[in-house]
Amino acid sequence: MSLKKKLAMGIATGALAVSMIGGGTYAYFNDVEVNNSSFAAGTLDINVTGGDAANAIIDVKNIKPGDTMTRNFTLNNIGSLDVSKVFLTSKYTVTDANGNNAGADFGEHIKVKFIVNKDKKTEVVHETTLKDLSKSDVVDRDLLGWILGGEPDGLKAKTSDSLTVKFEFVDNGKDQNVFQGDSLQLEWTFDAKQTAGTAK
């Protein structure tokens, strides 16, 4: 065999060896595992049950100065998350039956007392008028903050807290005839806030 053929044969053999080595780099042991994770958000859900018609906290007619009306209502945490605060927003509209209120506000004459039962005694934890309650800053309207001076654990999921509210049509000892026949529609909105986030 000539030297040229020997060289050509050697080069071809070397090229084949290199290609086999290069091809071998793609052959290796392998193991693949797929892990599926998930995030599910909890629910923040409260409802309020009252004692009057249609589950209203209060529904009363024919009131006069000096009348008081005591009603119970319950905050129910029916969600899966704990609640840290429940803010109360109060709004009302007055229907002036005779058009003679002359700027007098019926809501200013309705006193509201929030009461809790403590060791078989009742304790007023917050007192205001409908007018003032409807214009208070939100930080002053945390119902859970009023109950026994606040609850560090808030309202746990699937638990309830009960409150008593006493309304009074205040008799101010003056002529209140302008309110005869008037009506007041009260809307309370309960806004539940979550507790702080935790490590899971």
Rank of each mutant, 00 (worst) to 15 (best):
V139P: 00
K113S: 11
T189F: 05
L163K: 06
N101Q: 12
V165L: 07
V178S: 09
T159E: 09
F167Q: 02
T159H: 05
E123P: 01
L163C: 06
A157I: 12
N117W: 02
A192H: 04
T122W: 14
K174M: 12
L148F: 01
L130S: 00
K113T: 04
K156W: 10
I115K: 01
V138I: 15
R141S: 06
K118A: 10
I115D: 00
D191C: 10
G181S: 13
T159R: 09
L163R: 05
K111T: 04
L186T: 03
D191R: 05
L186G: 01
D105I: 05
F190V: 13
A199L: 15
K120H: 11
T198C: 06
E123C: 03
D119Q: 12
N172R: 10
F106T: 01
A192M: 06
F190W: 03
S136P: 04
V125M: 01
G145E: 05
L143H: 01
F169M: 12
A192P: 10
D137T: 03
S160M: 08
K193P: 07
E108W: 03
I147W: 00
G173C: 09
L184I: 05
A199Y: 11
S162M: 07
V178P: 02
D142S: 09
S183G: 04
D140K: 09
T198D: 13
E168S: 11
Q194M: 13
K121R: 14
R141F: 01
D191L: 07
F169W: 07
I147R: 00
V165C: 07
G154F: 00
K174Q: 14
K120D: 15
E187L: 15
V116G: 08
I110V: 15
L186I: 14
K158W: 09
F190A: 05
H126D: 05
F106I: 02
D191I: 09
F169C: 08
K120C: 13
D142P: 02
V170H: 08
A104P: 01
S136Y: 09
K118R: 15
S162R: 04
S162G: 14
T164M: 11
T159C: 05
Q180A: 12
Q176E: 15
G150L: 08
N100G: 02
K120I: 13
D132T: 11
K118Q: 15
N177V: 11
N117P: 04
V170F: 11
F114M: 07
L130H: 00
D132G: 02
E187S: 13
S136F: 10
Q180I: 15
W146C: 00
T164C: 06
K113G: 01
K193V: 13
D191G: 11
V178E: 11
S160F: 00
